[in-house]
Design a protein around this nucleic acid. Structure first.
Length: 590
DNA sequence: GCCGTTTTCGGCCCGACTGTTTTCAGTCG
């Protein structure tokens, strides 16, 4: 069972407790339900497989997993099932747990719909629900009505249409359009995109927007009239939600400007950060909400977030860190890291020009000189060209010949830049496949043409953790290799990354001056943020690259920086923040 | 069921919105 399946199982158990009249009358039952949901949450967000943690006897290290759930998971991995779970879910129709995927349907509605509409089997449950709604079978159930039936029909269709989360850059663009529209209304005093978008997670669920205004009604009306909307989901006094084409949901929250600090804080999340923050505040007899901070029945207001956090005795916490992963404790000690910024970047070492060579994978569309001009505009001090290695069918002599030409071209460009008195240095690199056997897809004598190499995985993503780790370590061993490119090989919404023993990879990188790439491609953002955090903790050097295949991609650097910041990286952790002189030194040292 | 810089017992974030009723339950973030 993988993590998502285990999380779903725990959620199902929580739901079973929720609808069970025997247990739900116990006073502590609500908290048991929450505990199962918390454990499910934690497991969903884990980077390592629960199975691997179990192998290493580390289940208890998962937050929200205590003795009881750890024992159940132990039973699961030993016997393939959990007796106690089977018992409490025994009388419940399996379809119920599928129906719960529909927004607006929780445990109780799911059970009633399942029983009263005769939808029992998990397979095809959503289709049957659509059928029932379309034929007006839901409106007559007690506690349901015509509105709810319509609601359910739309939600279930949305959930089927939208199984994928938005990639960060796409979400950014959609959000910017809505913000632009909202700013046309004179009542909008301040506006910010918040939620996971502000925290810069690799994929975004909903788009959250906050507005400061003293005309909440008018602002919400304006929002509800957004011309691109498919549907108005809800509209209240202080919040409203829209559905855009493609199943993109936009949530708006409005408050007077005096509340804006608390509003930003509340709406940025994450949920776990907020819960931890409120739990801490309660100990100080303070109660937090999106309006402000209540103390002894009196509420205090904050126009900005800095003041809000200060009132709690802590430094302002950058949104990227708000995941309840130690940031609150450090903010109290005034010891938060100073995160790397886009302006710190001095070069980009992974880009593909259109240099004519028969590469193993897709080539770039712009010539080297175009990239150089862009880089000068970005105030970079150095860049590196890393076209893919040539096709494996190419003869050794031809490979050497082509790569010598590329080397000469790069040198010529360096000369030209010098003559024009432009301070940009060109490095000549290559992105080389690590073949399934661990060999590099380049003949040894061709390495002499290169300043450095990136190695990466482009095929054979399956295979055991041990085998893949061995493959990567062998691939990294060549002295010209500096960078491990898009390390997990994941494609967001599309393909999981390879399984690797990161302790071993990071240890090797640390000892042999290898750098782990954060690849800024929108559908990669690879290294993932959680692994970046692990690398930073160990002192492993990161490099943020764009993997540009055309010059416009260079601006994607900011997304890679977001990942680095979510990994708690400071300037010192990222090698392409170094000046040219320092960078050359580290590039050539072993 | 989980958890500990007030606690190994006794707490557990907080408030919003909707639909269906008529004072609230269910759901969500």
């Amino acid at each position: 069972m993988n993590n998502l399946e285990i999380a779903k199982l725990l959620r199902s158990v929580a739901a079973a407790y929720q609808v069970n009249p025997a247990t739900s009358s116990e006073p502590t039952s609500h908290f048991r339900i929450v505990a199962y949901q918390n454990a499910a949450d934690a497991i969903e967000h884990l980077t390592s497989e629960v199975k691997d943690l179990w192998d290493d006897d580390k289940l208890r290290e998962i937050p929200g997993v205590g003795n009881t759930i750890a024992d159940y998971l132990d039973e699961l991995f030993k016997t393939g099932k959990i007796k106690h779970f089977e018992e409490i879910m025994h009388d419940l129709p399996p379809a119920m747990f599928e129906l719960m995927d529909v927004p607006g349907i929780g445990a109780k509605r799911a059970l009633r719909l399942s029983r009263e509409l005769g939808i029992t089997r998990a397979h095809g449950a959503l289709e049957k629900l659509i059928h029932a709604a379309e034929h007006g079978h839901i409106r007559n159930l007690e506690g349901f009505g015509e509105q709810l039936e319509k609601e359910i029909l739309l939600s279930v269709k949305t959930v089927k249409e939208r199984s994928k989360r938005l990639l960060l850059p796409f979400a950014t663009i959609v959000a910017e359009e809505v913000v632009e529209y909202m700013q046309k209304h004179p009542g909008v005093e301040k506006i910010e995109t918040l939620g996971s978008l502000r925290r810069r997670t690799a994929t975004v669920g909903d788009i959250d927007i906050a507005v400061a205004t003293n005309k909440p009604k008018e602002v919400i009306e304006h929002f509800a009239a957004y011309p691109k909307k498919n549907k108005l989901i809800e509209k209240g006094d202080s919040t409203s939600s829209l559905l855009l084409p493609g199943g993109v949901q936009v949530d708006l929250m409005v408050q007077p400007a005096q509340y804006f600090g608390a509003l930003l804080q509340h709406f940025t999340g994450s949920k776990h950060h907020n819960i931890a923050l409120r739990t801490y505040a309660l100990k100080k007899k303070l109660s937090l909400s999106e309006r402000g901070i209540k103390s002894g029945g009196r509420i205090e207001y904050f126009e900005n977030e800095e003041a809000f956090y200060k009132r709690l005795g802590m430094d302002w916490i950058p949104p990227e860190l708000r995941e309840n992963d130690g940031e609150i404790e450090l903010a109290l000690l005034h010891q938060l890291p100073k995160l790397v910024e886009l302006e710190d970047i001095k070069g980009d070492l992974h880009m593909h020009s259109n240099f004519p060579q028969e590469t193993s994978h897709d080539a770039g569309t712009n010539q080297m000189e175009d990239y150089a001009n862009m880089a000068v505009g970005l105030n970079y001090e150095y860049i590196g060209f890393t076209e893919h290695n040539l096709k494996s069918s190419t003869s050794e002599a031809k490979v050497l010949d082509v790569l010598k030409q590329k080397q000469e071209l790069a040198e010529k460009l360096n000369l030209k830049l010098k003559i024009e008195n432009l301070k940009l240095c060109i490095f000549n690199g290559l992105e080389i496949d690590i073949t399934p056997s661990g060999k590099l897809a380049l003949p040894e004598n061709a390495f002499t043409t290169l300043d450095y190499a990136i190695v990466s995985l482009h095929s054979s993503f399956r295979g055991t953790k041990a085998d893949q780790t061995k493959r990567v370590l062998e691939g990294l061993a060549h002295p010209k290799v500096r960078i491990f490119g898009h390390p997990t090989g994941r494609k967001l919404n599309n393909r999981e990354g390879v399984e690797l023993d990161w302790d071993k990879i990071f240890d090797y990188a640390l000892k042999h001056n290898k750098w782990i790439e954060i690849n800024s491609s929108p559908d990669r953002l690879d290294l993932p943020d959680t692994l970046a955090r692990q690398a930073v903790k160990l002192g492993v050097k990161l490099i943020v690259d764009t993997d540009s295949h055309e010059i416009s991609w260079l601006s994607g650097m900011r997304y890679g920086i977001s990942v680095a910041r979510r990994g708690w990286a400071e300037k010192k952790d990222v090698v392409n923040t170094l000046s040219l002189q320092e960078f050359e030194k580290i590039l050539h040292s072993t």
